[in-house]
């Protein structure tokens, strides 16, 4: 295809991506080095029954005017990055000095909002992703052996947790595990503890969120693996059987290697999607026990009366850096594959 033709074909798509994906990333970076204006103060004389006093007051009009003139706020350099709500260098340093060891230091660091969110996001990503792959693979193996007639309905039901809106899917589970819901009440009866609440304990909340994550994403891995199982080469399978390989050995040495590229694909997609975990925290109202990077950005933007663009920007930039680190191995790999193809 000629370069000119290519250009015109790709142009509309490219413009939307540059305007609404690339430019916002720049905008976020710019916002992150600015901070809201401080309120303009004026000295007024305040006279009461006991005489007059000089007082400092917020000049609402001037503040509004300043905000309108320079909506971005004032330049703050990397101040937002290093403050308590983000990388918190000072606090981390103090915590480290006053700690006897790593075990002592960790809880102190995890009290800081950014590290708390980072800890949950990373734990969620690296627990849910492998579990999704394992469960998806097991379900695929199971469904593959079912009689043909019931495969269709099984796949239909399996798709539900994935297709249904994440916010809605997590709400449905949340209502079931409510202390008065079917699962919550049953658990209370089983453990004979009327105060047992899955929402109250941070550990249980974390587990609950991850269970939701696996429930939501396992169908994706299942479908991809199931499709892969249909293409396992029959010759190799037969040869392995003739050589006396057991069922386990056939799964281990024929099926698994065949599905390896699919596993890489699923992990890539899952890493990207799990890293942005957000909706279940809203649905489960779990912010007291678990926050994610996406959630703290959202909270800066809509959780308060005024928006903290600087703070949201700084967290966003840090999140984007995190995503890039996750992506680098994949990009390098794809790059190598592509260059080999050229040679």
């Amino acid at each position: 295809m000629k370069n000119r033709t290519f250009f015109w074909f790709i142009l509309p798509s490219l413009i939307t991506m540059l305007l609404f994906i690339a430019l916002p990333i720049v905008s976020v970076a710019v916002q992150s080095v600015h901070i809201e204006h401080e309120a303009v103060m004026v000295e007024v004389e305040n006279c009461g029954p006991f005489g007059c006093k000089q007082e400092l007051q917020v000049d609402v009009e001037e503040t509004a005017k300043l905000k309108e003139e320079r909506p971005l706020g004032q330049f703050n350099g990397l101040g937002t990055y290093t403050n308590r709500n983000h990388l918190a260098f000072t606090e981390i340093g103090l915590a480290w000095q006053s700690s006897t060891g790593f075990v002592d230091f960790m809880p102190k660091a995890l009290n800081l909002p950014f590290y708390r969110a980072l800890a949950f996001t990373l734990t969620y990503t690296f627990v849910v992703t492998p579990l999704v792959i394992i469960f998806g693979f097991m379900i695929a193996l199971g469904v593959n052996t079912l009689p043909k007639r019931i495969k269709g309905p099984t796949i239909f039901i399996s798709l539900l947790p994935m297709i249904v809106t994440p916010l809605i899917g997590s709400l449905i589970l949340f209502w079931m595990i409510d202390a008065n819901g079917i699962l919550g009440a049953t658990l209370q009866r089983i453990f004979d503890d009327p105060n047992l609440s899955l929402k109250a304990s941070p550990t249980l909340t974390w587990i609950m969120l991850m269970v939701y994550g696996v429930w939501h994403s396992a169908p994706f891995a299942f479908i991809v693996f199931y499709a892969g199982l249909q293409t396992v080469p029959a010759d190799t399978m037969e040869a392995a059987m003739i050589d006396g390989a057991s069922r386990w050995e056939r799964t281990r040495y024929v099926v698994l290697p065949h599905l390896m590229p699919l596993t890489v694909f699923i992990s890539l997609i899952q890493l990207m999607d799990n890293f942005r975990v957000f909706e279940p925290i809203v649905s489960f109202s779990a912010q007291a026990s678990a926050t994610s990077l996406s959630w703290i950005i959202y909270n800066d933007l809509v959780g308060n009366e005024s928006q903290f663009f600087g703070s949201a920007g700084a967290t966003s930039v840090l999140t984007i850096i995190g995503v890039s680190i996750l992506l680098i191995p994949v990009l390098i790999r794809t790059w190598r594959d592509f260059n080999q193809k050229l040679v």
Partner: peptide, 14 residues
């Protein structure tokens, strides 16, 4: 594709 949507949104709002 990997960019979390909320990071983009925080770039749009202002």
């Amino acid at each position: 594709r990997a960019m979390p949507h909320i990071t983009l949104v925080s770039g749009y709002l202002l």
